[in-house]
């Protein structure tokens, strides 16, 4: 057989793979959206004066970060029903991946928040700003630029981790390529195409993130 590339097969399977790409993008987008919000909640929860809360959130984050994503996906999907939590592949996949990346992002946020000089907090206190305004209007806008690079890395990271959802049958790129492969006994073309599609999306995304970072810095008046 050897490495014999078949173009006719390539064109034949391409539409199906592009269709699946949409699912991959949706999974990455939804997962990242969950992670962005939940990560901020985790980061802020660790800064409250309530010791019980800060300790348990910190431990939970540490736990999620130290265990494999694929295990967490399996857990939600296969162990969930035993505990009365019957979730579709999509829902359990999104929860697992969102939670996993929220833990990573909370550390990125934490780093950004800690990078804001103490004097900014003091100025906010001296102006009598509420805690909410201090975070929303003074601290978070300044914590954002240094956090953006890390946030961008995890956007590409979550995108590249979506194939793990194939293990519970989410019809994203990897899962579709596997199906095509087993239906036709040809794996070279689908897997190569999957690699190319990932590459073509990842590379420009990384570039766009850098541009966005520059734009945000300029927008906030920081050089």
């Amino acid at each position: 057989m050897g490495f014999h590339w078949r173009w006719d097969f390539t064109w034949q399977i391409l539409p199906r793979l592009l269709d699946a790409t949409l699912n991959t993008l949706a999974a990455a987008g939804i997962g990242y959206g969950i992670a962005l919000v939940l990560g901020l909640v985790f980061a802020l929860a660790q800064r409250t004066p309530y010791r019980m809360l800060t300790v348990s959130v910190r431990e939970a984050v540490e736990f999620v970060r130290s265990t494999p994503l694929v295990l967490q996906i399996f857990f939600f999907f296969y162990v969930g029903p035993q505990m009365g939590l019957r979730l579709s592949p999509w829902v359990s996949g999104m929860i697992a991946i969102g939670l996993h990346y929220a833990s990573y992002l909370s550390e990125v946020y934490r780093g950004g928040l800690e990078a804001v000089p103490k004097g900014q907090w003091e100025a906010a206190t001296a102006l009598n700003l509420s805690t909410r305004d201090t975070y929303a209007r003074i601290i978070i806008p300044q914590a954002l630029p240094p956090a953006l690079a890390g946030m961008g890395n995890y956007l590409v990271g979550i995108f590249k981790d979506t194939p793990m959802l194939s293990v519970i049958g989410v019809a994203e790129l990897m899962h579709t390529a596997n199906s095509i492969g087993s239906e036709n006994y040809r794996y070279l073309e689908p897997y190569t195409l999957v690699g190319l599609i990932f590459l073509l999306i990842s590379l420009p995304t990384a570039g766009l993130i850098r541009l966005f970072e520059c734009w945000v810095r300029r927008k906030l008046g920081m050089r």
Binding site: G119, L129, Q142, G221, M222
Partner: peptide
Amino acid sequence: CFQHFNLFPHMTALQNCMEGPVQV
């Protein structure tokens, strides 16, 4: 007023001055 000014770097001079009066 502080030794190191502690102006908000993401706001203009005017926005720095308006922040307290508007928000607080």
